[in-house]
């Protein structure tokens, strides 16, 4: 039996009515278990509630119904210890240098200054940012800024890493290379990774398991096991099975994407 790291039972999220409109049933019900140390990805049409699901796990939002547990403890609108989040948008603090941004992750840690400095250096080294430690985010490319955010998350040594479309703003080549780096970090840290993405190829390359979500209200309609070895990299996309996996994901997702776009599935 796999060790359950995060469990969601009967999760639902409804947003209250605003501006004279009706309340929005955004998500659920969802039942899902993430295994300790696995790389789990979620794909789904726009607006299906993927990011809402991530916020519920992170403790940034509270579920309207159901229970989210991390390491056996219930999460209800409060951030659990050792959970790191990387957002799609650039979340670097523009007034801090790269090193200061990374060190931000340790501001509240009760550690000697020398230990903090050593860990910042390590995180910068892992993400290949040593030469840019004194630069400001405005002087970096989008990919490098995202690396700074990942380094800031890694420095806290999270056991659960939540990635909300972290490569969404990057070009295809940078995405593949960043994907390789994330895989390397996942192997190094042995953390559980929960990735949200629009890109089927990204999910198929990175994840051990991929869940497909329906159009709103988002539910899980399929879970695909990739069966990749842990020491994979971006060259996995050359394999025949890669095409099979992305085809299966698209089959599940196509009708939902059409539905989300307001078009009937049979007219595609």
């Amino acid at each position: 039996m796999p060790d359950v790291h995060v469990s969601m039972r009967g999760i639902e999220k409804t947003f209250p009515a605003s501006g004279g409109g009706r309340e929005v049933h955004a998500l659920g019900p969802i039942d899902l278990e993430l295994h300790r140390g696995e790389f789990f990805a979620i794909v789904g049409p726009s607006g299906c509630g993927k990011s809402t699901l991530l916020e519920l796990i992170a403790g940034l939002a509270e579920a309207s119904a159901g229970v989210v547990q991390f390491e056996g403890r219930e999460i209800r609108g409060e951030i659990a210890d050792r959970v790191g989040v990387v957002f799609q948008e650039d979340a670097c603090f523009p007034w801090l240098s790269v090193a200061e941004n990374v060190a931000f992750g340790l501001r509240k840690a009760n550690l000697p200054a020398a230990d903090k400095a050593r860990r910042v250096d390590e995180a910068l080294g892992i993400m290949g940012l040593q030469d840019f430690a004194r630069h400001y985010p405005a002087q970096l490319s989008g990919g490098m800024r995202q690396r700074v955010c990942i380094a800031r998350t890694l420095i806290t040594e999270p056991r659960l890493i939540l990635l909300d479309e972290p490569f969404g703003a990057l070009d295809q080549q940078t995405r593949l290379l960043m994907g390789e780096e994330v895989l390397r970090l996942w192997r190094q840290t042995k953390a559980t990774v929960f990735l949200i993405t629009h890109a089927l190829d990204e999910a198929a390359m990175l994840a051990d398991r991929i869940a497909v979500m329906s159009a709103r209200p988002g539910r899980l309609i399929d879970i695909v096991e990739t069966g990749w070895p842990a020491d994979r990299d971006s060259r996995i996309i050359e394999r025949v099975e890669f095409g099979t996996i992305t085809s299966r994901l698209w089959r599940s997702l196509r009708a939902e994407s059409l539905k989300a776009g307001g078009r009937p599935a049979d007219r595609a």
Partner: peptide
């Protein structure tokens, strides 16, 4: 997203105001 980052790092209200 900067406020969310502060929340993820479990900042108090004062820390959020001072640091973010």
């Amino acid at each position: 997203v900067l406020i969310k980052t502060g929340r993820v790092h479990k900042l108090t209200m004062t820390e959020m105001a001072r640091w973010v």
